[in-house]
Amino acid sequence: MTTKEVADKLVELCRQNKIDEVLETLYADNAKSIEASDMMGPREVEGLQAIKAKSAEFQADVEEFHGATISDPIIAANSFALIWTLDATFKGRGRMTMEEVCVYQVKDGKVILEQFFY
């Protein structure tokens, strides 16, 4: 898959709330994830299984989901970025609206790096 194809598929699946499918089909086994802070879990994890665990932990922390918007991707060579806004109530933290810039690197048709800025 090209970077554009990966980006378009990731956005499509995320808009359908199919995060597990995104990870299973679009991520490399050795992918890396970097958060802006430790507010949403570990700042840095490496490997698909660790990213899946981090995602599951995040989803378990959501008490109630109120909505989300995901922009169309901006693509440049082997990278793409998008804006993701999430409105959710988190256990012990209450309702929050989060807006983040998500940046992804693609190699050989798979996401090898995700990095979040919020």
Rank of each mutant, 00 (worst) to 15 (best):
D108G: 01
V11Q: 04
Y118A: 08
E5V: 08
T25I: 01
R95Q: 09
Q115F: 06
K107V: 03
K32S: 09
I19A: 08
V11A: 12
F116Y: 06
T89A: 06
Y118E: 01
V22N: 08
P73I: 00
A77L: 04
A28K: 05
S37W: 09
S55K: 11
A36H: 11
A53S: 08
E5C: 10
L13D: 00
N30E: 11
G94I: 10
E57C: 02
M98K: 04
L48F: 04
Q59P: 01
S71R: 12
S79R: 14
G92I: 04
Q16P: 00
I74T: 10
R43Y: 01
A53Q: 10
E12C: 03
D72L: 07
T85F: 01
I70N: 03
M96G: 03
D108Y: 04
H66W: 13
K9N: 07
A68M: 07
A28P: 08
V101G: 01
E21I: 03
S37M: 15
E24P: 05
V106D: 04
V11I: 15
D108R: 02
E114M: 04
D8Y: 09
Y27I: 12
Q105S: 13
V62D: 02
V111T: 02
A36N: 15
Q16K: 15
E114P: 06
K107S: 15
A28E: 09
L26G: 06
A28V: 04
G41R: 10
R43W: 03
V101P: 06
K110E: 01
V106A: 12
T97M: 13
K52N: 03
E64I: 02
V22K: 10
S71V: 03
C14K: 05
E21R: 10
L10R: 08
A28I: 03
E46T: 02
P73H: 00
A60N: 14
Y118S: 08
W84H: 13
I51W: 12
G41F: 04
A31S: 02
E44F: 14
F80Q: 04
Q59T: 10
E21V: 11
K52T: 05
V62T: 00
F58N: 02
N30P: 03
M1S: 12
S33F: 12
R43C: 05
E44I: 15
I83R: 06
A77G: 11
Y104A: 01
I74A: 07
D87L: 08
A50P: 01
V106M: 00
D29V: 09
P42C: 13
D72V: 06
C102S: 10
D38Q: 13
V6E: 05
N78E: 00
Q16L: 01
I112V: 15
S55Q: 11
